[in-house]
Amino acid sequence: MIDTSPSLALVLAIVVLITVGVYLLLERSLTRVLLGFIAMSNGINLLFLVAGGAAGGAPITGQTAPEDMSDPLPQFMILTAIVLTMGISAFLLAMAYRSWQLNRHDEVQDDLEDRRVARRAAADLAAFEDSDTEVTTTLDEDAASAHDEMGGDRS
């Protein structure tokens, strides 16, 4: 039976990475979401490493005795996950860039129902103040222009 108690350092690293990841995923800017996604994926990759038990020799028959081998399966899964993360990161970056090209910001935009509700509220307010204004933009344009203003004047 091999030693399966996880190393404290690894567990702490997982905790930190996943906490950071969750925090960043909740941000609106796509770049931060991407960083959060990468942090979380790495945290989970470490989790796989812990799941595989203590480190041992290279799992090659003839080089290491079977009882001293480290478990190769989690390593293969981590490799696959790293490749997938890389591909998705590239795609997310491209999307953030495209969003910046189109709208000069890279925030995850409101969905159209949200904008519809916001527009209804705005219409109510206008009626209350007796200052009717024509709505000339589409919901899509509304969604693209509505965003948190972070870091300076970018309306």
């Binding site: 796509l30 979401v33 996604f37 994926s41 795609f91 969003s99 189109l102 995850v108 899509d140 693209a144």
Partner: peptide, 20 residues
Amino acid sequence: TGERIRAGTIYVVVSLVSSI
């Protein structure tokens, strides 16, 4: 296009969370 990027962003982020 603008609207596909908007919808796509939401879709991708949600899917990423589920994959994680």
